[in-house]
Structure formats: C-alpha cells, structure tokens
Design a protein around this nucleic acid. Structure first.
Lengths: 124, 124, 124, 124
DNA sequence: TTTT
DNA sequence: TTTT
C-alpha cells in the first residue's frame, strides 16, 4: 500500500556510523522539524523524528553532516516493537529513509573537522 | 519546515469518537499499511501507524468506516512524550491527519450496522 | 533536491504496453484524480495527470488494470519539451512513477477479458 | 482522492505579484529541481515545475525570495487547458502550492534590494 | 493492541 | 483525449 514520508529538518546531534553483524552500514539520526505554526505562547515548536539510514546514505550522512545540518529525507514509516526492561512491549515508529539530500547552504558548517580545506558539498 | 506523510492502509479496529474537554471531536485510529515487499520468509508484513483525526474528519471516519476499511490519509508526523507509570518518559510519534479519503470500494462493508439500507459512500 | 508525488486516481483509458527501441517496456496512463472540494456549481472536478511507467510496473499495469481502475502512484515530476508542429516548443510536465499500487477492491472489474476465471489481484 | 506534491528547488526568476480581478494576490513561479542522478554524460539535469501561489504565500514569496532562492513547496497537481492561438487546446499541468518554506540559508541573497539592513528570514 |  |  502507500507509505510515503517527506521531511526537511535539522540533525539534533552528530551522526555516528554503525555496522550490522553482516557489515551493512547504518546510522540513526533524529530530525528536528520546526512546525509551521505557533503554539498558544507564540512559540515555534518542533517535532523530533527518528530516521534510519542504510548503506551509502548512512555513510554520506556521517561523512558530510553534523549537528544542526539541514537535510531533506524521503522514505517510509516503519513500526517495530521490542520488550522493555519492565517486561512490557515498547512500540516505536520511525522513518526508514530512501534518500537524503543535504540542504545546508553553508557547507563548511557541516563538514567534519580536518576536511575544511577540501571541496565541500552543499545544496545541489 | 517540511513534514508530509501520505498513507493508504486499513483500519485495525472500529474507530471511536471522543471529545476534548472543550468539546472538539477527535479519534485515534491505527492504520495497517502492508509493505510492498516480502520478508525472508516470503511474507508480506505490515506497519502499524497511529493517526489522530480532528473535527469533521474524526466524525466522518467514525460514521463511515469500520475495521478493515481502506483509507488514504495525508498529514504530518508529530512527536509527543509523557511520563510512563515507571517514571520514565515515553516518546510517541504519530500522524496528525490533514485529510482522509475513504477508498473501500465495497462501501456496504464499512457502513455501520443499521445504516446498510441508506446510501453509502465509496471511492470518490 | 526533493521531488515527490503521491496520487490516487482512476485510469481514464485502458493502458497499452509499448517498447522502446532497446526493448524496455513502458506505458503512459492518465490518472483522473477527483478533487476533494466542490466548485461554484457544487460539482466535483478532477485533475488529469499523465504518468509514465517503466518495466515491471508498466507490464503489471497493462496486465491487471483497465479503464476506471483505482491505482495509487508514487513518483516524481518530470519536465520535457519538444518542437510542436507549428515550430514552437511544447512544454510537458508529467509524473514518472516509482511504484504503482492496485487499489480497486473489485478486482474482476479490472482484470482483462479472458482472465476472469484466474486468480485476480486486488488491494493488498 | 489523494494528490500530494512535495518539491525542493530554486526559483528560476524573480517572482512578481499579481492580483486577480477580485483582488486576490497570486504569483506564478517556476522551480528548478535538480535531479538526484546523472544522465549519460554525467551531468545533473533539472526538472522545471510551474507552481501557483495564492494570498499570503504569494505575498511572502514576492517579498522574501529572489531568483536562485531555495524553497520547499507542498501542494497538489492541477490540470488546466486553454485554446492556443493556433486554435488547438493546450494542456497544462502545474502545482498549486498549499505551503511554501524558505530554505535559503544565506538570506541576504534572497532579500530584496533596500531591505538588506533589516532582519532577514532564513531557514526556520 | 493489530488490517485483507 | 478524460475516470466513478
């Protein structure tokens, strides 16, 4: 059936590359997506969405993005549950990314230390 | 920023209309969205996504849809947290619907009991 | 950058399978997508959107869908131009499908003649 | 039915505010949306998508955006036809925006002349 | 707690 | 050139 998600938001922390036991690259990021409306106090709140990236998308994100970077993600919602330590099931909904775009226009802000002299990537 | 979700799936249970203390109609449904690929055992799994509907959308859904009905939803992802009974924060991600479409082509399957003789709604 | 389209609508005609000179299967369908609001005369209008399907998606659509079938499409917008016979450029915007879902719940309506006795496909 | 579009791209020219005869603000922009893959020559091509913005969205876009600005748009596809000057019908598909987000991170690039000293808007 |  |  149809399951389509599009998000533009900022990384809430530096991404870290992990590997599955089979050696597949993966990373989990959280996107802070500012709402397009204000709450009763006139403040802009944000939604925090967990996203899982696989393979090349995971590698590129860890290489080129840092906390605060603006990215666009397309993907699908996935649900999952596991046994919490209190013995009760915990239900999680997260986004599995199909693609990620790096939208930060000031790429030097999002390029890892020691790479600042090299060509960086920005909006394309 | 951008936060856009489109889902087509089936209601996992009959929806129930509730009211906020201010009298606003609201309902929470769970959509079972079958995946478009098979797992290692050749089975089609589903993702279960919580969706919140407000006002007219809530009322119409409770009036016209039953467990198993196929609906299309557009909306946005919203995150929320509350204190679980073990004192720890529980984080929830759900879809807040902006619109819902009733896609079940056999409307008599999704019309409430006692309404079967009246005009039903289907795909439009 | 981000370019994401999701449509649910009906085929305006029977789809026809074509092949490129390299032998790749392709078909062009037009989706009638009913609007979710009424015009000044109280009528529901529709938007007519050209969609191009490739390979397996083209083959399955031509095999399983007929005029009037309800399908869900995800894809991207593509622009193209060619020289019209009056010498002026003609600009076309169409959807290139990444996936198609067959949502007609009464599959016998959308199965080609002579196949009605075989197992049909419906919503999954 | 479902008709959902999400685009991130750049304005191909400065937007101009117009008014309908009833006085409603409207503007038409074209978004250049770079593809996420290369053609046979290794180049990144772009799709050019016409978008119509109404009311506040039109006003804000004309006030804050210039040629080259990066924006995110959500909306729906709309089809339309008119009689070409050769007497033949011309069919047009365009995006009617429901929301627009200004994603250019260097706001001084996209703020109109004479406004550079004032507070500018960027990604939010 | 899961739909066909 | 448009679907139910």
């Amino acid at each position: 059936m149809i399951n389509q998600v599009t998000l533009v938001g900022r990384l809430t922390r530096d991404p870290e590359l992990r590997k599955t036991t089979e050696g597949t690259a993966v990373t989990q990021i959280t996107l802070a997506v500012n709402r397009n409306f204000r709450n009763h106090n006139g403040e802009i709140e944000a939604d925090f969405v967990q996203c899982t990236l696989w393979r090349k998308a995971a590698e590129n994100t860890c290489q080129y993005c840092r906390k605060g970077a603006v990215v666009g993600i397309t993907g699908r919602l996935q649900s999952r549950n596991y046994d919490g330590k209190d013995g009760k099931k915990v239900y999680v909904t997260e986004v599995v990314a199909e693609s990620i775009r790096f939208l930060s226009a000031r790429p030097h802000d999002v390029v890892p230390e020691g790479k600042k002299e090299e060509t960086a990537i920005g909006i394309s």
